[in-house]
Simulated scan of single mutants.
Amino acid sequence: MKILVPVKRVVDYNVKVRVKPDQSGVDLANVKMSMNPFCEIAVEEAIRLKEKGKAEEIIVVSIGPAQAQETIRTALAMGADRGILVTAEGRVEPLAVAKILAKIVAEESPDLVLLGKQAIDDDANQTGQMLAALLDWPQGTFASKVEIDGKSVSVTREIDGGLQTIKLDGPAIVTTDLRLNEPRYASLPNIMKAKRKPIDMKTPEDYGVDISPRLEVVKVSEPKKREAGIKVGSVAELVSKLKNEAGVL
């Protein structure tokens, strides 16, 4: 089995994001970047499947600036076999990403595409579903458990009523949720080995995909600061404040 894992370079989740003074977007100058946490979980799951003998090759794909090579190298150091970087500056929307991935899938013919359910920068949660629609492949979203049996993929996902298990006939698309696994840290020897693993450099033009944005960002602003809470002396006072001051009753 061959597994394709798309990954995204985002602002590190430990960094406090700052909005540009003109509110045109997020300030990325001198900000630490890293692999999207959900993508990291997808890479880890692919590696675990390979360690179980369920997969022979793991290909990591990233679509973004040249610096995304670092993100691919991280995945290679974790245990992936090779990488593909589609260089693209600026914002690349989920539909454009899905179209490029569909072209790569046609070239690589993977048996499984394993990707994070969403990126922590735009929280779109669209790429996996769009890719499944473009390829007309079955999809299992928000996976908290993945099992491979031959060409079939069983995905356990969390729903409001508990857990739901679905069985997909491969090839298939699976998007990963937080509780699927705990990603490993890359060891120093593996980091050194990753520098020798191949990364193919491509452009959107190589795949005939127009990545021009379809949406216009009007304004980006920070959320309002949460106001301090107050203590009340009785239930009656609480009801009064909810009704007369907050206007929620």
Rank of each mutant, 00 (worst) to 15 (best):
residue 112 L to T: 05
residue 113 V to S: 00
residue 115 L to Q: 14
residue 117 K to L: 10
residue 117 K to D: 08
residue 119 A to G: 13
residue 120 I to Q: 08
residue 121 D to Y: 10
residue 121 D to L: 06
residue 122 D to G: 15
residue 125 N to P: 04
residue 128 G to L: 13
residue 132 A to M: 13
residue 135 L to D: 13
residue 136 D to M: 12
residue 137 W to Y: 15
residue 139 Q to H: 15
residue 142 F to N: 13
residue 144 S to A: 10
residue 150 G to P: 11
residue 151 K to M: 04
residue 154 S to G: 11
residue 157 R to Q: 05
residue 158 E to I: 06
residue 158 E to Q: 05
residue 161 G to D: 00
residue 162 G to T: 11
residue 162 G to K: 07
residue 163 L to Q: 00
residue 166 I to Q: 02
residue 171 P to W: 07
residue 171 P to E: 14
residue 173 I to N: 10
residue 175 T to P: 00
residue 176 T to Y: 01
residue 177 D to H: 09
residue 178 L to N: 00
residue 179 R to G: 06
residue 180 L to W: 03
residue 180 L to E: 03
residue 188 L to N: 14
residue 189 P to I: 01
residue 189 P to D: 00
residue 191 I to M: 11
residue 191 I to F: 01
residue 192 M to L: 14
residue 192 M to D: 08
residue 194 A to G: 03
residue 196 R to A: 11
residue 198 P to W: 05
residue 199 I to A: 08
residue 201 M to E: 12
residue 201 M to S: 15
residue 202 K to T: 13
residue 202 K to W: 12
residue 203 T to G: 00
residue 203 T to A: 04
residue 204 P to D: 08
residue 205 E to W: 04
residue 207 Y to V: 02
residue 209 V to H: 03
residue 211 I to V: 13
residue 211 I to M: 01
residue 213 P to I: 14
residue 213 P to N: 13
residue 217 V to F: 03
residue 219 K to P: 06
